[in-house]
């Protein structure tokens, strides 16, 4: 199983996503934004960072990178695509997911160990979770406030497309505490928290048991691995 991680100019968590894929037992494949080639991968991760300095709007320029034509095409054919933070912003800018992400309501960048609830465990990236499972995933962003029209929100909630919801603290003013979304088919998932930073004991978020021991993020990658293998 080969999972591609696309590096854009300004991508920051691309190597971390590759490490997470390795730890889950799959083969990471480095993809370059300027190519029109997915190198035959089985799934794609759009990593976090500040692609193109987040100029214009976060993810806006990256969503027009050459490789995104292939990503959009593959996503529409059902290939699993995970957008993390800046990658989520790209998915929204590319209209693979609805709504928008704006500056945090408190105006500051925030880094915290965030509890989120898995609202939909039927997507390509969430099958290893139980429905309603609460997990701890690091969050770090300046523009993570999710917005959408009332109509879109109603549809997202009605169709079960809210994949993750912030628990305890809403860290950025996201409407309906939305932390992440899935498309109706369940192959395209985007979220602001960073699952690739909760994959290795000793370097993950704090949990109630131990400092930096959280590995809840690993299940994102094992989910897609099992899905593709079956």
């Amino acid at each position: 199983m080969r999972i591609g991680v696309i590096t854009f100019p300004g991508s920051l968590d691309d190597r971390d996503a590759q490490r997470a894929i390795s730890l889950a037992g799959a083969e990471p494949v480095a993809l370059w934004h300027g190519e029109h080639d997915l190198h035959g991968v089985d799934a794609i991760v759009l990593p976090g960072g500040f692609s193109y300095g987040d100029y214009l709007r976060c993810g806006a320029i990256a969503s027009h990178s050459p490789i995104m034509a292939e990503v959009i095409d593959a996503a529409n054919k059902g290939m699993p695509v995970l957008g993390i933070c800046n990658g989520f912003q790209m998915l929204v800018e590319a209209h693979l997911l609805p709504g928008g992400l704006i500056r945090n309501d408190h105006g500051k960048f925030v880094r915290r160990d965030q509890v989120i609830r898995v609202e939909n465990n039927t997507t390509a990236w969430t099958t290893d979770f139980t429905a309603g499972e609460e997990i701890v995933i690091p969050l770090k962003n300046g523009e993570g406030g999710y917005i959408a029209s009332d109509e879109t929100l109603k549809q997202l909630e009605g169709d079960g497309l809210v994949a993750f919801r912030y628990m305890g603290v809403n860290p950025n003013g996201s409407l309906n505490d939305i932390a992440g979304l899935t498309n109706p088919r369940g192959n395209v998932v985007g979220l602001m928290p960073h699952p690739e930073h909760a994959v290795e004991a000793g370097f993950g978020p704090n949990t109630e048991v131990r400092m930096r021991s959280g590995v809840d993020g690993l299940k994102f990658f094992t989910s897609v691995l099992e899905g593709v293998l079956s």
Binding site: R15, F109, R111, K140, H197, F203, R212
Partner: peptide
């Protein structure tokens, strides 16, 4: 809280620990 200490995935200790620690060789 405004600083990212997760990026690169090698941070073993960070504030408020007395010292910051980074893994060099994975």
């Amino acid at each position: 809280d405004q600083y990212d200490y997760y990026v690169m995935g090698n941070t073993a200790l960070a504030f408020p620990d007395d010292a910051g620690m980074i893994r060099v060789d994975e």
